[in-house]
């Protein structure tokens, strides 16, 4: 089976997965598409939204579609890094025992690590996660544990800020996408969510998604195939470079945001990792649209989700991030053009 056929088959799988999850989690097609893109670009996803909009449900649905071993951790203020690596107890024989924690328990077969309410965990815990996300490995017990197929899904609610720890810039940069899940606005969707009993039981909904539609153990391979088969033209390369420079110095590109002093807005632009993630995600978009080349629309599809959380604002504007960052990214998209 040649590469094109493999990619075509996997595209069908990806679209079928999207469709299945879209049936379980209604009213969120763009969010599901972006999570799917992150999955095939081998990126981690941070999901933010109001309480009870279905963040956990959609992530669990993806975890089921990916199959493999699944771990879930609830972020709490007393959670410590070692709680992810191991836990100790005294067994029935009165002997002290040390068992692997949720991160190590499944070894290389871990495909989905779901960190619920990540902003409730201490920065120490978040730091442990940094390496696990970036390198897909951790060191413990004098050895290194690899998680080559792991995808981290994390969520946080944006309503409560008490007893929470805002993610550090470095931690945010590890996530390919930071997605905002909002309450559906369509009345038909809202009516179905509250009236239709099928949407009242999350477990049943998740089980409606076929298990391991896109086997997680094969995602690395297919992701590599996608990245090598979808090409970018010099015009797209220049476009990406221009976007990168615009995130560093938007004023030089004439980017403006109402009520913002553009000369004092940016602390640091997008990181090389961020731009790399953007490019990888854009290639996946092109592949999902059955193209072998990237066009600006592919980049624009993922630009807000990939760079919105990666532009580091000065403290004076950091408090208004949720308002300023989307406006800035939108302005960059409006100003920078290709060709």
């Amino acid at each position: 089976m040649n590469s094109d056929t493999v990619l075509s088959d996997w595209r069908s799988k990806a679209l079928a997965t999207e469709s299945a999850i879209g049936s379980a989690v209604i009213g969120q097609p763009s969010l599901i598409r972006l999570i799917s893109i992150a999955l095939f670009a081998r990126g981690h996803v941070l999901l933010e939204g109001d309480v009870g909009v279905g963040k956990t449900t959609v992530l669990r649905a993806f975890a089921r579609a990916v199959g493999g071993d699944f771990e879930r951790v609830e972020g709490t203020i007393d959670l410590m890094p070692n709680d992810l690596v191991y836990h100790t107890y005294v067994d029935a024989d009165g002997q002290p025992r040390i068992d692997p924690g949720p991160l190590l328990r499944h070894g290389e077969s871990l495909t989905t690590f779901f960190f619920n309410e990540i902003n409730r965990a201490r920065p120490q815990v978040q730091s442990l996660l940094l390496r696990a996300m970036a390198e897909r490995s951790v060191s413990a017990f004098n050895r290194e544990y690899q998680f080559p197929h792991m995808t981290v899904f994390a969520d946080r609610n944006r309503v409560e800020k008490e007893e929470t720890f805002e993610l550090a810039s470095a931690a945010r940069d590890r996530f390919m996408f930071e997605l905002n899940m909002s309450t559906p606005v369509d009345d038909d969707v809202r009516q179905a969510l509250i009236i239709d009993t099928a949407y009242h039981n999350a477990d049943t909904l998740i089980e409606s998604v076929p298990l391991a539609m896109c086997p997680g153990s094969e995602l690395n391979h297919i992701a590599g195939e996608i990245q090598s088969s979808v090409r970018t033209s010099p015009a797209i390369d220049q476009y990406l470079l221009a976007i990168w420079r615009a995130t560093e110095n938007p004023a030089a590109f004439g980017v403006s945001v109402d009520g913002v002093d553009m000369d004092r807005l940016i602390l640091a632009g997008a990181s090389p990792r961020g731009m790399s993630a953007l490019t990888r995600a854009a290639r996946v978009v092109a592949w999902m649209n059955d193209r072998d080349h990237v066009i600006p629309e592919d980049i624009q599809t993922v630009l807000p989700s990939a760079l919105g959380h990666r532009i580091f604002l000065t403290p004076i504007y950091e408090l208004r991030r949720s308002e300023v960052a989307p406006a800035l990214v939108s302005a960059i998209m409006n100003v920078v053009a290709s060709p």
Binding site: Q238, A242, A246, A252, F253, G254, V255, S256, N334, V335, V336, A337, S338, P339
Partner: peptide
Amino acid sequence: QGAMPASSG
């Protein structure tokens, strides 16, 4: 136009 100085390269 002033808002788009880098348009289209």
